[in-house]
C-alpha cells in the first residue's frame, strides 16, 4: 500500500529537518539551506538538493541520508536531483542553525563577507581583514584568522586572542 502514500510537501520538509548534516550533526540539512525544493512529478516525490562546495565529499552522504529518512517514513517512489543554481549561499543558513553552530563551538558566517577574489588586497591595504568574528567560547571579538581553510571546505581556522581557544569559522560564500 505504500505506493498510494502521498504526504504533503510540508510534511516531507518536517521529516527532512530531522536529517543532520553529516559533518556538523547539530544542524539539519534544511537549516543549512541545501534542500531547495520538495515536489511531486506524478507519483514520484522529487527532492532537489544543492551542494555546499562543489567538491564536498559529504554531498553523496547527504543524498543517502535523505533517501534513508524518506524510506523510513514509508516513501519509496522518490528521486533526488542535484540543483546548481542559484549556487548555495551561507545567507540561507537559518538563525536557529547559527545559534546551534555557536553552541557547538563553530562561529557562524558573517553575512556579506564572501570573498570577491580581490578581498585579500583590500585587507592588506587596510591592514585588517574587515571581518570580525566573535569567539564562540568567550564571545571576545579579539580574534584572528589562522588559515582560510579549516577541517572541511566550508570552514576557516581562527583563534581567540583572549581565551586562546582555536575555533572553526563557518565562512561566508
Amino acid at each position: 500500500m505504500s505506493t498510494t502514500l502521498h504526504p504533503a510537501p510540508d510534511e516531507v520538509w518536517d521529516w527532512l529537518s530531522e536529517v543532520p548534516d553529516p559533518e556538523i550533526p547539530v544542524v539539519s540539512v534544511t537549516e543549512l539551506g541545501i534542500v531547495r525544493d520538495v515536489s511531486y512529478d506524478g507519483d514520484t516525490l522529487v527532492v532537489a538538493v544543492t551542494p555546499t562546495y562543489s567538491g564536498c565529499p559529504a554531498t553523496a552522504v547527504i543524498d543517502m541520508m535523505i533517501e534513508d529518512k524518506l524510506r523510513e517514513k514509508g516513501l519509496d517512489n522518490l528521486r533526488l536531483e542535484r540543483r546548481l543554481s542559484p549556487p548555495w549561499s551561507t545567507d540561507w543558513v537559518t538563525e536557529e542553525a547559527r545559534e546551534k553552530l555557536k553552541q557547538f563551538g563553530i562561529a557562524p558566517p558573517v553575512d556579506g563577507t564572501a570573498s570577491t577574489g580581490m578581498s585579500a588586497k583590500a585587507a592588506r591595504l587596510s591592514g585588517e581583514s574587515g571581518l570580525t568574528v566573535a569567539c564562540p567560547r568567550c564571545g571576545s571579538k579579539n580574534t584572528e584568522r589562522v588559515s582560510q581553510f579549516g577541517s572541511t571546505p566550508c570552514k576557516a581556522a581562527w583563534r581567540c586572542k583572549d581565551c586562546l581557544e582555536p575555533f572553526d569559522y563557518f565562512k561566508c560564500i
Binding site: P51, Y53, S54, L84, S85, P86, P87, A114, S115, T116, G117, M118, S119, A120, K121, R124, Q148, F149, P153, K171, I173
Partner: peptide, 24 residues
C-alpha cells in the same frame, strides 16, 4: 555553462585571495 561557472566562481574567489596573499 553559466550555472557551473557561478558555482565554481565562489570557490575560486577564495583561491585567488589565498594565492595573492601568499605570493605577497
Amino acid at each position: 555553462v553559466a550555472e557551473i561557472a557561478a558555482k565554481a566562481l565562489k570557490e575560486v574567489s577564495y583561491h585567488l585571495d589565498r594565492a595573492s596573499d601568499l605570493v605577497v
